[in-house]
Write a protein that binds this DNA or RNA. Sequence first.
DNA 1: TAGTATTTGTACGTATGTATA
DNA 2: TTATACATACGTACAAATACT
Lengths: 260, 260
Amino acid sequence: MQNDDLVDPSQKAAIKRKRSDAVADRIRRHIFQAGLKPSDRLPQEPQLIDMFGCSRSTIREALKSLEVQGLVQNSTGPAGGARVASVSPARTIGLLSNYFYFHPINIVQIYQIRRLTEPELAASVVGHLRDSHFAALERTIEEQHEHPTDAAGWAHHRKVEVEFHEILIEACPNPLLGLMCRFVNEAINWTIGTVGDNELSWAFSCANIDYHRRLIDAFRSGDAERAREVMHEHVLSAESFLLRPNEPQQPVFAEPLQLD
Amino acid sequence: MQNDDLVDPSQKAAIKRKRSDAVADRIRRHIFQAGLKPSDRLPQEPQLIDMFGCSRSTIREALKSLEVQGLVQNSTGPAGGARVASVSPARTIGLLSNYFYFHPINIVQIYQIRRLTEPELAASVVGHLRDSHFAALERTIEEQHEHPTDAAGWAHHRKVEVEFHEILIEACPNPLLGLMCRFVNEAINWTIGTVGDNELSWAFSCANIDYHRRLIDAFRSGDAERAREVMHEHVLSAESFLLRPNEPQQPVFAEPLQLD
DNA sequence: TAGTATTTGTACGTATGTATA
DNA sequence: TTATACATACGTACAAATACT
């Protein structure tokens, strides 16, 4: 029995853990230590059953745990089974959002963070934007020029505005900064989506277009500090349009985010 | 059959999901919408089997999913079963750390974030520190005065230094800011722990003590901007002691964090 | 297009472990 | 100590999805 492998010698009088958790932890450790890459295959269930000397349900619970963490994906059929997956930003943010049900946060507090992260994002992408990025950025500006007429048009408009920032996140060399910006964007989207106040003023849109233009300009001249400053103004401007600081703020992510 | 309850009418031609995921999602949604609080009980397994019209293994996989997410905790015995749990910071950070195995981040990039978050943390706690907080802060300074002699002493010293910042996090009214600071601290701890360079210079410690003193002073006078500035200096100072920017940096969280 | 083999997903029955009274 | 109520673990059987012929 390879059952003994489960016992971690480092914790002598080990706390009582569930078997499936121990197995999940061992597999996770193996993924990290063996340097497995996305789409690398894990052994199939019968082999894992053999390796760990436990039942199928235990193995399946362990794989479920890893699946929820976003570390593996399962598929059926021939050549199926568990494969290592790159933990996606969407999943990470989904898991993160759970935290804020029990530790409520409102949109004013989100903007307190956005004032920090977005300017740094703007500064950090300088020198990392390729032609394809610039092309994509310009494209969002083109699309924003059309003055929406109906609700669907405004929704699309909003989406394009957010896209500008997502392109920057793509180019950001610091993955933690990128993730924080993604989370903040998601929080803002969520708020706008639930408040249903989709028809923001055209003046707001015009201001945004102008800021985006000035940002591209700073990016092109390779001026990180100017990019930072313009983005700072941009965030403050958006804040003044979107926030009603005196109104009571409802918690962000009061409803759960989809995990896939 | 209450099986129909599983079908979300909003997504007409719903994508094919696993039953257990659908059940997990429904339970999660229920927790949020019903406003359940930590330690509130969920129905027991037989009742859930009945409610969702599916088998025990499906229900157990769903509960496992929620457990991994940190939303519920299971217990055996009479009056046992699944109870709602407040998603802990430790679990959130553990799940978050998985992301960075596939999107590597080094300590220089961590400090890029720390320069943003810690000063904001210092400013944000002004007016939120109670006597107990001040007492705890002063206590860490007392403990830091002893010049460590052995490795264990230095480890303790480090721990106390970090504790100062954790007390601030406790008092921070913005949960996202608090979480980010926690994550950054964890990353720094991890790095110091693995590098094994536990014996940092005494000059570094003395500088830290001085900064901490000046921070407490700013907190007492209710001067948020001064607190921000002092903390900014503090972070830059620590950076200059800890970082060797020209050396190749190994990725942070190359080994997985414990989830409990 | 249909058929078949492979592998996970779901179901059910039973036994074991554990915490409470 | 015993009984009870609950989760945890195991084993087998079958359904469903996928890839390949």
